[in-house]
Amino acid sequence: MGKSKRNSPKPDSNRAQRLAERRAAQEQAAQTVTRPFAGLAAECDLVALREFVPSATATLKLAPGAQGDRPVTLATVLPGAVAALVRAGAEPIGFVGAQVQHQSADPAADLAAAILWTQSAEPGGSLNSVAEAEITAPALTEVIDPGASLDLTVHPDFNWWVPAGVQPDAQVAATIEQANRAIMPSARLELGADAVGAAWWVDAGERAHLRWIRPEAEDDVMLALARVHAAGGLHLGEGSRFAGSFRTHGLLVPVFDLDQERHPTEWVTAAAEFGTRLVEALATDTPLTADERRSRDGLRSRQITLR
């Protein structure tokens, strides 16, 4: 008699549409690159620029043998959230955006393609999406120097969108003013040459946060946080509270709520001390104690994943 089709969804039904959307989401998740910026010394800062830093720029150091020699500046976001643009001038400069309107499942590949586009694009041009460029780029580690860190400039506003000495038209000026009103003050904490990862202070309005992107394996960082928590060291001193952690681009990011009245530099010493405690915990390979296991389970319940 054959297999019953009573439970099969009709092609045009809402259930069929939901199943199709679920399959598409699963296929996209399977294609997503788990840790796109692995192999780059600037991995942690690249993740920060993509995820939460409002306004910052850094001149990229191209890899030896990379196509083109036009200077390229990485920016958190460009006007219109475009993928790239080339600023006209006596010496044209390429700009590529970390936070873009259109992206694929591999942000590192998108960034590599955008960088290559800037090398041959006409001054004054912009690229909405790397898909429009039709560029098959090599790995990002072959386009920018993988051993170079980012020499970052954190901006208090988006006025750098317009070159110095240029008077923007009314529409551009209004766009910049609107962006400036929404900006969250940010700062990268300089914790010394031995510091690991990238620790960023962000004033989110109601409170300030420290978001510390760690380069170690996610599970290793979680176990280390559990050890530190069980020992009573999961804090940055008075005026701080561990808020939780989030996972993004294959990395774990511990987050602390901070006293908003204190300047970012006032947290440097406490953050460095916490960093030492965490590194020591990461070097420990003994089985977790009962208290540490309870800490781990509690910390995992306060963890979220950003896509």
Rank of each mutant, 00 (worst) to 15 (best):
I176H: 07
E177G: 13
E177A: 15
A179G: 05
A179Y: 09
N180C: 11
I183V: 15
I183W: 01
I183Y: 04
M184P: 00
M184C: 14
M184I: 04
M184G: 02
P185N: 09
P185S: 11
S186H: 06
R188L: 12
E190M: 10
G192R: 10
A193F: 05
A193H: 12
A193C: 08
A195G: 03
A195R: 06
A198F: 02
W200A: 00
W201K: 00
V202S: 02
V202A: 03
V202E: 01
D203S: 09
D203T: 07
A204C: 13
G205M: 09
R207D: 09
R207G: 09
A208Y: 06
A208T: 10
H209D: 09
H209K: 13
H209M: 12
R211P: 00
R211H: 10
W212L: 07
I213Y: 02
P215V: 10
P215R: 12
E216C: 08
A217K: 12
A217P: 10
A217W: 01
A217E: 14
A217N: 11
D219R: 14
D219Q: 15
V221F: 07
M222C: 10
L223P: 00
L223I: 12
A224M: 05
L225W: 04
L225V: 08
A226Y: 01
A226V: 06
A226E: 06
V228G: 03
H229L: 07
H229I: 02
A230S: 13
A230Q: 05
A231Q: 12
A231E: 13
G232R: 11
G232I: 13
H235T: 15
H235N: 15
H235M: 10
L236K: 04
L236D: 04
E238K: 14
G239A: 08
S240T: 07
R241V: 11
R241H: 12
G244F: 02
S245A: 15
F246E: 01
R247C: 08
R247Y: 05
T248S: 13
T248F: 02
G250E: 02
G250P: 02
L251I: 03
L252I: 06
V255K: 01
F256H: 05
D257Y: 09
D257P: 05
D259H: 05
D259N: 13
D259S: 12
D259G: 06
D259I: 07
Q260G: 15
E261N: 13
R262T: 08
R262E: 03
R262G: 04
R262K: 15
H263A: 15
P264L: 04
P264S: 08
E266F: 05
W267Q: 03
W267F: 12
